[in-house]
Write a protein that binds this DNA or RNA. Sequence first.
DNA 1: GGGGCGCGTGTAACCGTTTCCAAGCGCCTC
DNA 2: GAGGCGCTTGGAAACGGTTACACGCGCCCC
Lengths: 334, 334
Amino acid sequence: MSTVTIRDVARRAAVSVASASRALNNHSSVTPATRQRVIEAARALDYVPHLGARSLSRGRSNTIGVVLPDLFGEFFSEIIRGIDYAAHRRGLQLLLSNMHGSADETELAIRAMRGRVDGLLVMSPQVDAEFLGRNLPKGLPAIVMNAAASDGTHPTIAIDNLAGAREAVAHLVAQGCKRIAHVTGPRGNADADARRAGFRAAVTELLGADAGIEIEGDFSEASGIDAAWQILSQRPHIDGVFAANDMMAVACMATLAEGGMHAPDDVAIIGFDGVPIAQYVTPALSTMALNLAELGERALEKLVAITESEDQVEATTEMLKPELVIRASSRRHA
Amino acid sequence: MSTVTIRDVARRAAVSVASASRALNNHSSVTPATRQRVIEAARALDYVPHLGARSLSRGRSNTIGVVLPDLFGEFFSEIIRGIDYAAHRRGLQLLLSNMHGSADETELAIRAMRGRVDGLLVMSPQVDAEFLGRNLPKGLPAIVMNAAASDGTHPTIAIDNLAGAREAVAHLVAQGCKRIAHVTGPRGNADADARRAGFRAAVTELLGADAGIEIEGDFSEASGIDAAWQILSQRPHIDGVFAANDMMAVACMATLAEGGMHAPDDVAIIGFDGVPIAQYVTPALSTMALNLAELGERALEKLVAITESEDQVEATTEMLKPELVIRASSRRHA
DNA sequence: GGGGCGCGTGTAACCGTTTCCAAGCGCCTC
DNA sequence: GAGGCGCTTGGAAACGGTTACACGCGCCCC
């Protein structure tokens, strides 16, 4: 074991551990001579401070915890990238936790963070505000990303799913679609539910309630394929598809093409999220684009801000608005 | 602060901290009655153990550190997913570090792990074995993923880039390609260098040295686009492209199509890595597929194995062989 | 020339757990 | 009835750092 402690360093430099600690941490009031001796001793022994011990005594760890519902796919990897980028700039480490879609595990994951992180970034679209309020440790700064609703005590950064979904539908209608299918996300998922609600509202308003049909999906590639088969068998024919995420949109579009329905001429298709893959499929996928890396980055910055400010933080809610990106998959030659 | 410690619990249950600790950890020899009292007290106070303190006194953290060169793109997110999957199964946490492509940061990242992790997973294709040998803490179990060469003391899991590149070229030749371009990865990157070497060897052997040209890339989307412009301006025309990763292949293929060179008829294209996106582009991209999630998973399992076994571990090297996946982008109607 | 002040250093307490060791206690056995 | 054993419990020492506090010393200033 690289089990050389600060005591060894102190002994070799012939000073007390206090001085050694001070010298190594660039603290005030250490003679240049002592500092030099200590640093040399540390180098000679190849001393590396034990960060666990340090954080125990300092009361802070320079680490922030990230609790995500999953690690699968570009959606989350983009968010992590944004978080990491901001964390790196501030010299913070990331402790990652994945609750694999279950509320029990969310609770577990959150508890496992106690005493190891200075703050928490929680994204958990399937638990509600009440749950978070009950489980988030009292004194630990936390940012809730994209929750069903704010619990009223933690700042929140959420995606404006409702507005996004409405805009997606409006776009399809503007392209001339008369009968639109919505491939939904899983029930109970806050994002999915909000997108569904936006779809319903917009369709009812613009075309009448009968013009919209919902096909149950779960954000997965497989469910996008299933949805395509259902669409192919629909009568009268569907001429517009709004999928609750890009992954389903991509898979659905490819499968529809196999079945003879080609975008954009036979059917206009739009997704949600704006993950990188969307621009490489053929035809390129229209989408309600989110800057997920920025979402992660902003969440971390916000967390740092409340960590550093002493005074009570107010539970503000920031909204991230999706941006309509029109590509070939929904562009009608009108 | 949720600053209730085990002392508070002990006091409320009217036992010593020792007994409290034993009760909470399901230790041997605590009366059911005491255990009950302690557990109730803990619940009443909403006690959550301070894991930093625990790991200090226990000498293990139930956390493993992951040092990656980057967090960008599907390549790494797939690896992380695999690691997470295996870690989750064993109740381990993940401390993530990103060295942003620099050797200095690698050193920093590794040092920042001391005292917080029980083992290390290091992937760092741009540093050599000597560097790792110098920087990896002596007593800390570590697995090197995909390094230039083993440092002889740490077990290694590496990708068989050489064989993969040869197979890719052989496939293009079998499709009738006579003049093949290789869009390379960045120099100094072990994976990139090995793929380049494999390309050279295979081209020379199968078509003669003149049949191959190398176009410098850096694994990024942008460099795939640049490469396409160079290919479009080549005389005589290139009829096969082997890109050092899928991202460049995808971007290159799309740009070539804009310039009038369509795969697979005008040019056969194959990538490397087998990231998910490859199957959704049009035409679907042929690739040398790696099961990256499995790579991550195996690395973690191996790490756990050496962590648990007392005896000296031998520095074995495991090879992950890429698998040729033929899709439309390289399938000639021949 | 003595009191005070500032500087550098050391001693020891502390962070929150776990765990070694010793001690109390009841019961069985010889 | 005493010795011993096993079970439960508590005190205290770790783990490896940081830091409050005290202390010695040289200097300046009145």
